[in-house]
Computed example of a mutant assay.
Amino acid sequence: MSWSWEYLPSEEYVTKGAPTDFLAAVSVKADELVRAAEAQYLDGTTYEGAGEAMRYLDVAGGSFAYYVVPRLELVVVCQVTSPLM
């Protein structure tokens, strides 16, 4: 497996109405989170603990909520918030 990130339940649902500049900032930060998770969980597929709690991160133009699922080697972005939405 290879680490990645995705919107859940779907990109259309999570990002509806969000400015493209803001979504670009979310994408850049999500890529960074993937690299950090990959370094922390060298083989996420063998992880046996409870998953991480949801976290919130500020980016240019707003913030987003995410959580890490080590066993799936996945960072999930589940909410984006921008005052321009």
Rank of each mutant, 00 (worst) to 15 (best):
G62R: 06
L57Q: 15
L42I: 11
E11G: 09
A39R: 13
T46S: 10
V28H: 01
E52T: 10
V68Q: 09
S27T: 15
T45C: 04
V68L: 02
R71T: 13
F22N: 15
E48S: 14
K29Q: 15
A60W: 12
Y56G: 12
V26N: 05
G17F: 02
E38T: 05
L33Y: 06
G49F: 04
A18H: 12
G62K: 12
A39L: 06
Q40S: 12
A24V: 10
G61H: 09
A50Q: 03
A24I: 08
Y47V: 07
V34P: 07
E38D: 11
F22P: 13
A50I: 00
Y66A: 08
P19T: 09
G51Y: 00
V26S: 10
L33Q: 11
G51E: 09
Y66P: 06
L33D: 00
T15A: 12
R55Q: 10
L33R: 12
D43H: 10
R71Q: 10
S10M: 10
V69F: 00
L42D: 06
G51T: 05
K29G: 06
S10V: 07
P19Q: 07
K29T: 14
A53N: 13
L42A: 13
G49P: 12
V34D: 10
G51P: 01
Y41E: 03
E52K: 13
K16L: 09
T45F: 06
F22M: 12
V34K: 10
A53F: 02
Y41H: 14
T45W: 03
G61S: 05
G44C: 00
F22D: 14
K16Y: 06
P9I: 12
R71C: 01
G51A: 05
L33W: 02
Y67N: 14
Q40L: 00
E11C: 01
T15C: 05
P19H: 09
V34C: 08
L33I: 06
V68M: 05
T15D: 03
E11P: 07
T45N: 11
E52I: 03
Y67C: 11
S10W: 11
E52C: 02
F64D: 07
Y66R: 08
Y56V: 12
